[in-house]
């Protein structure tokens, strides 16, 4: 492996790629190849991680978020090593005759070469389009040189549920000062939607000030970041409606670590407004039972996978005020609990 990558060479390889793709498509029998790009998506992974997972997520994202995808695979090594290869990911939308292709660059890098990466990767970003950096590794996020890569990002994406210390990671996300997307927050969108739907009702909306307790039941020995986010968001919303909630944490031994199984919003008065959401299932399929007083409904959630989460986050390139407020409060809740 060499010690450096020349961005100009990589860009030349990309240009040659398009010429090759154009030649390979037979004009007599196809409509040619269409190049699509809306962003540069840089993904940081550990070399030990199965690359096919990452590439299949990239491929699934391409139709909706076509991008120049740069996957940087890190291996722990004290030697400064960098290598690259260039290829394309194409798909043919159902019923169409034309392929749509996106560029992909895979870079192998050692930890020691992290300081060298930003100057190499920055020229590879597509001009005039946002740069998204998705860090899949808690270890990489914690490296001192990580901010140099984060600097080039318009938005930084990570999954705080993979980090061992919720309070620490929530504080760290805030300290980046970047526009950030946490998949642990994204994972809550469906439950939050259900809660929001309940309070579209004027009669329930009128009773918001009755609610004084937010009880979150979770698996594991301490609440996951998702639980802190959820409690923080609900508390913020209730306070803005004139309520004064406190948060109650309940550990459930029969629930998998890191999962939220139950959420209850209650007031002090017996027979008062009572909202309960019970979540069950696994990442492939989750269900929710919703109970509000005498009404009950059943909801089916989409699968919880990187594709579903990322497609939501990539649709929001700018700041997310609701998330940022919830992040700040979640950080405080986690710090208080420790």
């Amino acid at each position: 492996m060499s010690t450096t990558i020349q961005p100009e060479r990589v860009l030349r390889e990309l240009a040659e790629l398009w010429v090759t793709l154009g030649k390979e498509s037979d004009p007599a029998h196809s409509s040619g190849v269409l190049r699509a790009c809306t962003m540069t998506l840089i993904t940081l992974v550990e070399e030990s991680e199965d690359p096919s997972d990452v590439w299949s997520t990239m491929a699934a994202l391409m139709p909706e978020h076509p991008s120049r995808a740069i996957v940087i695979r890190f291996h722990p090594s004290g030697m400064r090593e960098l290598a690259s290869r260039v290829f394309s990911q194409c798909w043919m939308p159902f019923g169409h005759r034309r392929q749509i292709c996106c560029e992909q660059i895979e870079i192998s890098a050692s930890d020691a070469s992290l300081p060298d990466l930003a100057p190499v990767v920055l020229p590879l970003a597509v001009a005039d389009l946002p740069v998204m950096v998705w860090c899949r590794s808690a270890r990489l996020f914690g490296l001192p040189e990580f901010p140099q890569i984060a600097r080039i990002a318009h938005k930084l994406l990570l999954d705080s549920s993979a980090f061992p210390d919720p309070a620490a990671i929530l504080a760290q996300i805030q300290r980046t000062g970047k526009v950030a997307g946490d998949l642990a927050w994204t994972r809550l969108t469906r439950v939050r939607e259900l809660i929001s739907q309940i309070f579209e009702s004027r009669s329930y909306l009128a009773r918001l000030p009755e609610l004084t307790q937010v009880a979150v039941t979770y698996g594991g020995t301490f609440p996951p970041t998702g639980a802190y986010y959820l409690a923080a968001w609900i508390s913020e919303c209730l306070e803005s409606a004139g309520a004064h909630p406190h948060v109650k944490w309940q550990a459930a031994p029969d629930v998998g670590a890191g999962q939220i199984s139950r959420l209850e919003l209650t007031g002090p008065v017996e027979g008062g407004l009572h909202v309960a959401i019970f979540v069950s299932g696994d990442r492939a399929q989750q269900f929710a039972e919703v109970q509000i007083d005498t009404l009950a409904s059943h909801a089916v959630f989409p699968p919880d996978n990187d594709y579903e989460l990322l497609r939501e986050e990539l649709s929001i390139p700018g700041r997310d005020a609701v998330y940022e407020k919830s992040l700040a409060r979640a950080g405080r809740l986690a710090a208080e609990r420790q």
């Binding site: 969108t189 939050r192 939607e193 809660i195 929001s196 739907q197 309070f199 579209e200 009702s201 004027r202 009669s203 909306l205 009128a206 009773r207 918001l208 000030p209 609900i234 919303c237 209730l238 803005s240 409606a241 004139g242 939501e312 929001i316 997310d320 609701v322």
Partner: peptide, 27 residues
């Protein structure tokens, strides 16, 4: 439920998140 609760009603749903939520159908 007593209608006087409506007197204290928030004018908008504080749980809205237009960036992420699909539009809700009202009751």
């Amino acid at each position: 439920r007593p209608c006087d609760k409506l007197k204290n009603m928030a004018s908008a749903n504080p749980f809205q998140d237009p960036l992420r939520f699909e539009r809700r159908i009202p009751e």
